[in-house]
């Protein structure tokens, strides 16, 4: 067969190298464009007053202190509830469950839970926590909804992490006469902590950015929430209201920038701590 190449294999290789490299750089580009746009539009709105005072005129002017506090409050509640549950369920799956069918079924359940749209969680939160349990529009209701959303991620990441802990660690522990509980708490969990924390951060950075899930559960108060039963207005919800109701686009960008910065601090800060811990226990 008389087949003439358009390019030599070496040239194809070079072309593909460029395409793959560009695909990689594209990821960075998207991030840079979104972050850059938000920060360029939002940073001018941010000053001491914006962060540390209450909003005036539904947010047309004034600050967003109650929103920052609401956000941190509901997210902390979500983390406090979802982390023990998720890690506990993962421990059950990796250390106790023996029925393979049940294990698969639970895993399938978690995957399904993770794929439910956040607005559905929001609606459920309204029906169950706000109305049925009569918790009202409150920080607690919002936190509980976010905990439900964060749970499957924490569970899935913890399960993968726990099952990757070498069984030789466990043997060493059992060989010294440790019980299963001692082995789990003193050997397995400390070794799994970096992975588990990564999962928790992944879950709560999603949670702190949620507007749809909390909008029917947390209320929309403009004052600083003190008690668990006070209503609040987390940053994403505030952003949504400012933008859709045309209150102040400028402050909407300011709010967005604050949210992005909080998420960045959470991610970068915990990554740093986790890496330090990892290096310490693995002797690198």
């Amino acid at each position: 067969m008389n087949f003439r190449r358009l390019w030599s294999p070496q040239t194809s290789q070079k072309i593909m190298n460029v395409i793959f490299t560009l695909s990689g750089l594209f990821t960075l580009l998207i991030l840079a464009i979104i972050l850059g746009y938000i920060l360029i539009r939002g940073l001018p709105a941010i000053n001491f007053e914006f962060i540390f005072t209450n909003p005036i005129d539904s947010g047309k002017s004034g600050g967003i202190l109650p929103m920052i506090i609401s956000s941190l409050y509901v997210t902390a509640i979500a983390a406090l509830i979802a982390t023990p549950l998720g890690v506990g369920a993962a421990i059950y799956m990796t250390e106790f469950a023996e029925n393979q069918k049940l294990i698969k079924f639970i895993r399938f359940g978690a995957e399904t839970l993770a794929s439910i749209p956040s607005i559905i969680f929001g609606l459920f939160g309204l029906a169950f926590f706000v109305v049925f349990l009569n918790l009202g529009w409150s920080i607690l209701s919002g936190g509980l909804v976010l905990a439900l959303m964060a749970f499957p991620t924490i569970f899935q990441v913890s399960e993968v992490t726990l099952s990757s802990i070498p069984s030789t660690y466990k043997e060493g522990s059992y060989g010294l006469g440790a019980t299963k509980l001692q082995t789990i708490f003193s050997v397995v969990l400390p070794a799994a902590i970096p992975g588990i924390i990564t999962g928790v951060i992944l879950a709560i950075t999603r949670a702190i950015s949620e507007a749809a899930a909390v909008m029917y559960a947390v209320g929309s108060a403009l004052s600083i929430p003190i008690s668990l039963f006070d209503p609040g207005r987390p940053l994403p919800l505030h952003l949504y209201v400012l933008a859709t109701e045309g209150v102040s686009l400028e402050n909407a960008y300011g709010t967005a920038a604050v949210l992005v910065i909080i998420v960045l601090i959470l991610t970068v800060g915990t990554n740093y701590i986790v890496e330090r811990y990892q290096m310490k226990i693995m002797g690198i």
Partner: peptide, 24 residues
């Protein structure tokens, strides 16, 4: 006591590895 085929220290400090058995 048992010593295994592949050395299997715990990912802890040298001191805590040896102290582990006493603590449990």
């Amino acid at each position: 006591g048992m010593v295994f085929q592949k050395p299997n220290p715990f990912p802890k400090s040298i001191f805590e590895n040896v102290a582990y058995g006493l603590r449990i």
